[in-house]
Write a protein that binds this DNA or RNA. Structure first.
Lengths: 221, 221
DNA sequence: TAGCTAACGTACTGGTTCGTACATTAGTGA
DNA sequence: TCACTAATGTACGAACCAGTACGTTAGCTA
């Protein structure tokens, strides 16, 4: 998620609008993910940037719009990752398992994104609703799921009546919960869902669950 | 979750410590669930109570402790509901399905609780960690799952190596996600996971998924 | 019924925090 | 090279908000 790594080399030009904006977004992402929308401090974001608070308002207008911009970029990263999905060469069962594993990996690798989405849900997705970009972002993963499901149905491997959005919800719920509820789950049940030693176990469990669901004979709906 | 409904009948006695505390907890639950920890306003909680802000500090000490008290009571409600679980008379498959459905129903009926848990996760479960009550609350549901799994294993219906906590995580993740991520999911995919018309569909889907997982032949671990 | 204490109310404060008015400089195009 | 604008910095204000000092009263008990 980090877009700015270059140290400010002294001789270099000082004014760089694009870099300043990217740096603000980087720090804002961390700060909002850390503390939530209301817990985040604009002054804190500014302090951890090479620029000042004035620039945040200059480029983004305000805290609310900054949070929306953070969300837009975070969802953009997801969409890009999903566009890299390439499972069409696999048979349907392997393809679905692979897709589930990539979702699993991606959620694990982007805990800040998970936190931002949780925070946005607390605010009833009002920033997404107010964003032009996010309204029509779509989901490449959904198209992939549709293709796999269709081919799995054709070959008679999968149950016929499974919907792509539903399957996406099923996969996401497990991957999301594992990260989002890590702390309360760990405190209450004494088990760290992100324990590296358990990672392969949960990754296989997710795949097994999805495949079992898709290949089981269904009772009457 | 609401403990106080009686309108303040004018002739009645004015001082009632227990009622005042319960009323503060009721309103605080709503306010914290509405706006998150940092978004919640102590003044707002006081205003929507028949008492004043002074009483919040008198009884609870501060905003942080009030939130902890809210969490303690909310988890207490869950625990009580779980203690009512009675599925031992069912065969293992029906029992697991019933347990999943009851979890599904309970999550749907307590969106405020889901929001509080999401909020607590943003704060890395620090209030649970600091609470004597919540540390050792346990989970009656886990014992039920353990019993069902054991009997299902004995009769050869279930896969042998499934852990109770893992199964609880699987069921909870779907039920929790459906409520916690309703807004972002709806905004991005145009589907309301809480649409009453879809309720039976998702309820059955959860049961089918869990049963399929438990009764499928497992690939090598 | 006197007095004692738990329960409650009012009014305020000190620090915090979003946002902005005003000043300044870098870089660019004529 | 000169002026113009995008980009940046400083200092401040006004509102908000958690928490408290101080005062009051209800209801119980001796």
């Amino acid at each position: 998620m980090t877009s700015v790594e270059e140290p400010a080399r002294p001789g270099e030009r000082i004014r760089d609008a694009a870099r300043t904006q990217a740096e603000i977004l980087d720090v804002a992402t961390q700060e909002f993910a850390r503390a939530g929308y209301d817990g985040a401090r604009v002054d804190e974001i500014a302090a951890r940037t090479r620029t000042t608070k004035r620039m945040i308002y200059y480029y983004f207008g305000g805290k609310e719009q900054l949070f929306t911009a953070v969300l837009e970029r975070a969802y953009g990263v997801i969409r890009e990752a999903e566009q890299q999905l390439d499972v069409d060469h696999l048979d349907p069962v392997a393809a679905i398992r692979r897709l589930a594993e990539l979702t699993f990996d991606h959620h694990e690798q982007h805990p800040d994104f998970i936190r931002l989405v949780s925070i946005e849900n607390i605010h009833e997705a009002q920033h997404i609703a107010g964003s032009e970009k996010l309204g029509k972002i779509g989901s490449p993963a959904l198209d992939v799921i549709r293709r796999i499901l269709a081919s799995g149905r054709e070959s008679g491997l999968f149950t016929a009546d499974v919907d792509a959005v539903d399957l996406h919800a099923m996969i996401s719920s497990f991957c999301f919960f594992r990260v989002s509820n890590r702390h309360t789950f760990g405190a209450l049940f004494g088990r760290d869902l992100l324990d590296p030693a358990q990672r392969a176990h949960y990754r296989a469990m997710l795949g097994d669950m999805v495949i079992a669901y898709l290949t089981a004979e269904r009772t009457a709906d």
